[in-house]
Simulated assay, not measured.
Amino acid sequence: MVLTTRAIVLSAIKYSEADLIVSCFTEQSGLKSYLLRGVLKSKKGKLKASQFQPLTQLELVANHRNKGSLERIQEAKVSHPYRSLHTHVVKSGLVLFLSEILRNSIQEEEPNKELFQYLEQSLHWLDHHDSIANFHILFLIKLSAYLGFYPDASSIDLHYFNLAEGNFQKNAFGVYSEKGPQIATFKAFFGIDFDALPQIKLTKKERAETLDLVLRYYQLHIQGYKQPKSLLVLNQLY
């Protein structure tokens, strides 16, 4: 079936000498993987390797056979050219980290238009703003809502956060209960939007500890979770 759909590139892996295997989250069909033959050597083809950088937003004309195999892209064009995401040093490092997280987190081949819209809007905000030091933490917390495991904040005034249960508790319960400064920092990200991020002032150590808490939460709630390889680079940038 040939269809036109918006898509966000999650990864592009070299296959043989001139091919790419590209993973995209599409608006119409969810997660899809495509084989792009000869794209690394072709200068006259319709598809260019530069179109498939991480988190690039595309409009695709693709042939989806939906048989569990690699699909084919007939045409692709960038639907939202970024101003800074692939040229700003810090943002490009952040893009690599977020694309790894999304590749590990989005696993279903089914449409999720609310999630797609969230990703579009979030990336647009990141592209157009400079106060981004805490963006990835809020992005991941909000993303968990679309993935089905957003923390229960109804008792946010309590001192402990249970990573396994995903809620705040009065007392420690089990090995996954956390208490301390990182929990207080974690709480600051609830009930805000991206425009409020500059109000959260964190040291490098506080930011790293809060991110570690969020990633451990993801590890407990995503089957087959893999620690992102770009985390070390991200911590150095921030």
Results as ranks from 00 to 15, higher is better:
residue 70 L to N: 06
residue 71 E to S: 07
residue 71 E to K: 08
residue 71 E to W: 02
residue 71 E to P: 00
residue 72 R to E: 13
residue 72 R to L: 09
residue 72 R to I: 11
residue 72 R to M: 06
residue 73 I to E: 00
residue 74 Q to K: 10
residue 74 Q to M: 10
residue 74 Q to R: 10
residue 74 Q to L: 14
residue 75 E to W: 03
residue 75 E to Q: 10
residue 75 E to H: 04
residue 75 E to A: 13
residue 75 E to K: 08
residue 76 A to D: 01
residue 77 K to M: 08
residue 77 K to C: 02
residue 78 V to N: 01
residue 78 V to K: 03
residue 79 S to W: 03
residue 79 S to E: 08
residue 80 H to W: 13
residue 80 H to C: 13
residue 80 H to P: 10
residue 81 P to V: 03
residue 82 Y to D: 04
residue 82 Y to F: 02
residue 82 Y to G: 04
residue 82 Y to R: 03
residue 83 R to D: 14
residue 84 S to P: 11
residue 84 S to C: 14
residue 84 S to R: 09
residue 85 L to I: 02
residue 85 L to T: 09
residue 86 H to I: 08
residue 87 T to A: 14
residue 87 T to W: 04
residue 88 H to Y: 02
residue 88 H to F: 05
residue 88 H to N: 15
residue 89 V to S: 14
residue 89 V to E: 15
residue 89 V to R: 14
residue 90 V to D: 13
residue 91 K to F: 04
residue 91 K to T: 09
residue 91 K to M: 09
residue 92 S to R: 12
residue 93 G to K: 10
residue 94 L to G: 11
residue 94 L to D: 07
residue 94 L to S: 11
residue 94 L to F: 11
residue 95 V to E: 07
residue 95 V to G: 05
residue 95 V to F: 04
residue 96 L to I: 09
residue 96 L to Q: 05
residue 97 F to Y: 04
residue 97 F to I: 04
residue 97 F to L: 01
residue 98 L to N: 05
residue 98 L to A: 07
residue 98 L to Y: 07
residue 98 L to E: 09
residue 99 S to R: 00
residue 101 I to P: 00
residue 101 I to R: 00
residue 101 I to F: 00
residue 101 I to C: 04
residue 101 I to N: 06
residue 101 I to Q: 04
residue 101 I to A: 10
residue 102 L to D: 03
residue 103 R to Q: 14
residue 103 R to Y: 03
residue 103 R to P: 00
residue 104 N to E: 15
residue 105 S to M: 04
residue 106 I to T: 03
residue 106 I to R: 00
residue 106 I to D: 00
residue 107 Q to E: 11
residue 107 Q to K: 09
residue 107 Q to H: 03
residue 107 Q to Y: 01
residue 107 Q to L: 11
residue 108 E to M: 13
residue 108 E to G: 07
residue 109 E to P: 14
residue 109 E to V: 06
residue 110 E to N: 15
residue 110 E to A: 15
residue 111 P to Y: 01
residue 111 P to M: 03
residue 111 P to D: 09
residue 112 N to L: 04
residue 112 N to T: 09
residue 113 K to L: 06
residue 113 K to D: 15
residue 114 E to F: 11
residue 114 E to S: 12
residue 115 L to E: 07
residue 115 L to H: 11
residue 115 L to K: 02
residue 116 F to M: 00
residue 116 F to L: 00
residue 116 F to H: 02
residue 116 F to E: 10
residue 117 Q to C: 08
residue 118 Y to L: 07
residue 118 Y to G: 08
residue 118 Y to F: 15
residue 118 Y to P: 14
residue 119 L to H: 02
residue 120 E to G: 10
residue 120 E to I: 09
residue 120 E to M: 12
residue 120 E to K: 06
residue 121 Q to N: 15
residue 121 Q to C: 01
residue 122 S to L: 05
residue 122 S to I: 02
residue 123 L to A: 05
residue 123 L to Q: 00
residue 124 H to Y: 12
residue 124 H to M: 05
residue 125 W to F: 14
residue 126 L to H: 04
residue 127 D to H: 00
residue 128 H to C: 09
residue 129 H to Q: 06
residue 129 H to W: 00
residue 130 D to V: 12
residue 130 D to A: 07
